[in-house]
Structures are given as structure tokens and as C-alpha cells.
């Protein structure tokens, strides 16, 4: 069976003046894969991800997301992806239901579909009792899980998660990853950036960015073998120490 790639990048580059934030990166992500995108601060992870989401125009190279070109078809890309940013991405002064209704609305979902999906998500998260609670009064872990569900609200084929678990306790992170697994099992492609090496272990494949380039890319097991160690931490540190630029 031939692999179906939902994200491809070929020599993708982003330059800000003299500074090359992302330097000719190439990779391909399969459908239903959990693709970990690692790198130290300032390595270019977020910039690369923004180019793929249509938030930032690449300087050169080629890339497609869900079969659409990042230069010319950003509207179609935006319709077929979900996005969760580093910063908390729900509206604190809106209730749980209102947040879901809003995101469903801006993705052009019909009212009946929004209602059904909202019910489904509330059930998944066991949040039925909190549906009319303002988001600001929810605990951080719940907010984070809700933010992920909202990014998945319009059932996108691909979801981009930019450091989704920052500042969350280990138990919640575990639960969060269970949600990611469930989504991937259902066929959603997950593109996730992270700092946490234990999370890197959860990914099907990992790429490590150093100074805007992809320094290594393989399964976690393959990387550990390649660097003759039993922890991703060591792999990452070995690569990241070579970095010239700092943030």
C-alpha cells in the first residue's frame, strides 16, 4: 500500500532580511501520523509551522498541506486544518458552549452540526456540567484539553499543535496525549511542536530542528539507535549543542 502524504515540504525556506529562520527543510508526513517537530527556542519550529498553516508566506521552496499549495491555496488549507497556538487560544470571557459555537461558526459549520459536535465534545471531556461556565474559571488542564477539542471542532484532516502542553501538569499532559492518540487513530494527522522529550517519545516520527535546518528525522527508536543512547533527551542535547544561534 502506498503511503498517503498529507503534508509535504521541499526545500522550504523563510528569510527575514538577512536572517534565515527556516533553511531549506524537506519532509513528508503521512495521514494519521503523529509528527513531532522538536527544536530549541529560536530554531525555527514556529516559523515553519506558520508557513504550513498559511499564516506566513514562504520565501522559497515548495510545500503542500492536504494537497493544497501553501503559496496559492491558503484559503483551502485553512479550511482543512485545525490550529492550536502556544498561547492559550480560547476566549476567557465566553462560556465553553459559546467558544465552541464561535469556532464552529467561523469555520462555516451549520448550526445543527455545531450543536451535535458540541454535545459530542462535552461528553468526551466530561464537561456537560460546565457547558455554561466561563472559560476563565476552568482549571488550566481542562482549558488546554478544551482548546484541543475546539481545534478539532470542524473535524479537520490535519491539526497543528504549537507547544500545546506548556505549563500543564504531567497527569494532564498524559490525558492530553491520549486525546491526540485517539484523534490520530481516527485518521487525523497530527503535527506537534514540543519541548518535552517524554512527549517526543509518544510521536510516530520526530524531526529535530537546529538553526533552521532539520538535523535529524526518524522514529524515536531509530534516533536513539543512531545516537547510541536510550533517551531522547540525550539525542536532543547532542544535536542542540551544535546550535550556533541563540534566541
Amino acid at each position: 500500500m502506498e503511503h498517503k502524504y498529507t503534508i509535504t515540504a521541499d526545500q522550504l525556506t523563510k528569510q527575514f532580511g538577512d536572517f534565515i529562520a527556516v533553511d531549506h527543510i524537506s519532509f513528508a508526513v503521512q495521514q494519521g501520523e503523529i509528527f513531532g517537530f522538536l527544536g530549541a527556542n529560536g530554531a525555527g519550529k514556529t516559523t515553519a509551522m506558520r508557513m504550513l498553516c498559511g499564516l506566513s508566506l514562504p520565501s522559497s521552496g515548495k510545500a503542500t498541506v492536504a494537497g493544497y499549495d501553501v503559496f496559492t491555496q491558503t484559503e483551502q488549507i485553512k479550511q482543512s486544518i485545525g490550529y492550536m497556538s502556544q498561547k492559550f487560544s480560547l476566549y476567557e470571557d465566553l462560556t465553553v458552549t459559546e467558544n465552541m459555537r464561535f469556532y464552529g461558526g467561523i469555520y462555516g459549520m451549520r448550526i445543527a452540526a455545531i450543536k451535535d459536535r458540541a454535545k459530542e465534545i462535552l461528553a468526551q471531556l466530561h464537561l456537560q456540567g460546565e457547558k455554561d461556565t466561563l472559560v476563565k474559571s476552568l482549571p488550566l488542564g481542562w482549558k488546554q484539553k478544551l482548546a484541543f477539542s475546539v481545534a478539532m471542532f470542524h473535524r479537520p484532516g490535519i491539526v497543528f499543535l504549537d507547544e500545546p502542553t506548556g505549563g500543564v501538569d504531567p497527569i494532564t499532559r498524559r490525558e492530553f496525549w491520549e486525546m491526540i492518540y485517539a484523534a490520530a487513530a481516527a485518521g487525523t494527522t497530527i503535527f506537534v511542536t514540543t519541548h518535552y522529550m517524554d512527549e517526543a517519545e509518544y510521536c510516530n516520527r520526530v524531526s529535530i530542528m537546529v538553526d533552521g535546518q532539520i538535523a535529524a528525522m526518524d522514529t524515536p527508536a531509530g534516533l536513539k539507535k543512531q545516537f547510541a543512547t536510550d533517551s531522547m533527551e540525550t539525542v536532543f542535547l547532542q544535536l542542540a549543542r551544535k546550535a550556533v544561534r541563540t534566541e
Partner: peptide, 13 residues
Amino acid sequence: ETGTMEILLASPL
């Protein structure tokens, strides 16, 4: 400031 602008820009809106 809150980062929601990114989400809005990433949406088809």
C-alpha cells in the same frame, strides 16, 4: 495579545 488573532488568521475567516 491573547494569541487568539493567530487562531483567527489560521481560520478560513
